[in-house]
């Protein structure tokens, strides 16, 4: 097939994907971060970078939070950085429940930084979701009126630095935890297809993002087994090229309604903006 014939034969198919690339009044990325990564010089993406890619808002965590013990300073720097973005970057503060006085960090996140989201890194902070302290923290965050993001993994174990290896979070305890804490609003970031179909199966109240959902037609296939109102657009940028998740919206065959759900409505529901 020559180039002209290829373009002609795929014209019909190409017309549909462009819906996903149309400029949108609102497109939320639930999985963005700022700050340095210890092992690689990541691109310096900011609110303008996201807007250029058609992303209007991003829930933004701090990469510093993974290894820095002065988490209060990390959260303060994140809040200041997000404040400069003109409302594009929504800060997600981090709590580390093994640090003394973590409840004061929660208070500062809510009262001093007006944060709505807490992002957790259990595998970098050394606790499991089965630990009682995690349940305590979940209660505290919920009582404070905030929502929770749990980062299942940051990168493929096979490519991690040999001196800083962090296995993915064991997500199996979430099933019972969510039943025991029905008011908690929880999203898991960077879950892969295996986690979704095994450990997270049946977690009907849980939100997920699509950054690490792989396989051809990945979003389309995930939605065969996962509720469409519980999957959100997330990029895991700047660790990942943000184009990855944007193109996933193109690769899967999604209606305009479904696209709006994935990129706007579901994130708004998670944030309690409905």
């Amino acid at each position: 097939m020559n180039r002209r014939l290829f373009l002609q034969s795929t014209a019909a198919a190409a017309a549909t994907p462009l819906i996903a690339l149309e400029p949108a009044a609102e497109r939320l990325d639930v999985n963005f971060a700022t700050g340095p990564w210890p092992f690689r010089d990541l691109p310096q993406l900011d609110g303008d970078s996201l807007k250029q890619r058609g992303i209007t808002q991003a829930i933004t965590g701090s990469l510093e939070a993974l290894l820095t013990r002065d988490i209060a300073a990390v959260n303060a720097r994140l809040a200041a950085e997000c404040a400069k973005s003109g409302g594009v970057l929504l800060p997600a503060g981090t709590l580390h429940p093994l640090l003394p006085a973590w409840r004061e960090d929660l208070r500062r996140c809510r009262d001093e930084h007006a944060m709505k989201v807490i992002r957790l890194h259990p595998n970098y902070h050394g606790y499991t979701l089965a630990d009682p302290l995690f349940a305590d923290m979940l209660d505290a965050i919920t009582d404070a009126g905030l929502v929770v993001q749990i980062v299942a993994q940051m990168e493929d174990q096979r490519t991690q630095h040999p001196l800083v290896q962090a296995a993915p979070v064991d997500l199996k305890p979430l099933h019972d935890l969510l039943k025991a804490h029905p008011k908690a609003r929880v999203m898991v970031l960077n879950a892969n297809a295996a986690m979704i179909t095994t450990a997270l199966r049946g977690c009907a109240s849980l939100w997920l993002d699509c950054a690490m959902i792989e396989g051809v037609g990945g979003i389309e296939n995930t939605l065969k087994a996962w509720p469409a109102e519980k999957l959100c657009f997330g990029t895991h940028a700047p660790f990942f090229y943000p184009e990855s998740s944007l193109l996933k919206l193109v690769e899967s065959e999604l209606s305009r309604t479904l696209l709006t759900a994935l990129t706007v409505d579901n994130a708004r529901a998670f944030l309690g903006r409905v």
Partner: peptide, 14 residues
């Protein structure tokens, strides 16, 4: 099919 086209195209597009 283990990977999406999208994530791998992004390495070049992005």
């Amino acid at each position: 099919g283990g990977r999406s086209f999208a994530s791998q195209l992004a390495k070049v597009h992005g």
